[in-house]
Design a protein around this nucleic acid. Structure first.
Lengths: 150, 150
DNA sequence: AATGAAATATGGACATC
DNA sequence: GATGTCCATATTTCATT
């Protein structure tokens, strides 16, 4: 598992993934090479899966965000759902869930008309029986990772 | 708005935010300084809000993920919800929504016991009337940003 | 894990289209 | 107005201790 230094390095990278290793090292009390070794190890072990950019959906033209719950036909496998959904560029995340629905899908669209089109296309998939959609009004919090409980 | 080159630069950074400007330039057909200038401009205009690390929640010790729908007391403002939720380190995102619930909250917990504790604490907040929670079974897709419709 | 050296990337200044 | 080239500086990366 991760020790305290690893936690702090991940936290520093979560805040700004382009900070230099020397800079991070100063925050956590290590030299730049020592930080790099730990980051390399975190990548090897899979704790860190990559580095990415944080974008403002609205600034990129995505004005409408929503969550679509999928009720699938009996005996639809998670893999079948994944294959069916992966060609939608508007889908940002999808997961199978407990409860009434089988999966929840997070969608970004340019506007309401676009959202409706995506919804109708998804609802028309062979494995989808019905959908229930919810629109995001305004984001309150957005973080990269949960922080340690204590 | 963003032109085609900007889109491709953002896409390249979404895939790996630590790629060098020279490397990105080769992909999109620009020199390194030209790429940097565009990235600087994208940050200034707010299209890019930062760079971050992509982590594997499970590898970091978060085995249990869930979504909690919040039904709030009448006249609870979005800002009050935000203030109430921001001190929970287990909360990764929260948004106000249309539909029956007032907000949806995405939570990572170490295990089921931990998730239950977080749920009970959130349900005990003054502004929360009741909650409805759903557990994530398995993630099917996870992306940084929607890609252009065409 | 730190140090120091070599390779590489960044980020200006300036000229060009 | 945006891009390319050049160059000084800063950073990464690797060998050594």
């Amino acid at each position: 598992m991760l020790d305290d230094l690893d936690e702090r390095i991940v936290h520093a990278l979560a805040g700004d993934a382009r900070r230099t290793y020397a800079d991070i090292g100063q925050s956590v009390g290590l030299s730049a090479p020592a930080v790099k070794r730990r980051v390399d190890r975190l990548r090897e072990t899979g704790a860190i899966t990559g580095f990415t950019v944080r974008v403002d959906p609205a600034a990129l033209g995505w004005q409408t965000e929503g969550v679509i719950e999928l009720y699938c036909r009996p005996h639809t496998s998670p893999e079948a759902i994944r294959r069916g959904l992966e060609r939608y560029p508007e889908i940002v995340s999808a997961s199978t869930v407990t409860g009434d629905a089988d999966a929840i899908v997070q969608v970004f669209a340019a506007d309401m008309r676009h959202f409706e089109q995506v919804l109708e296309r998804i609802a028309g998939e062979q494995f989808v029986e019905r959908t229930k959609s919810t629109l995001i009004l305004s984001p309150l919090l957005r973080r990269v990772t949960a922080t340690p409980p204590a």
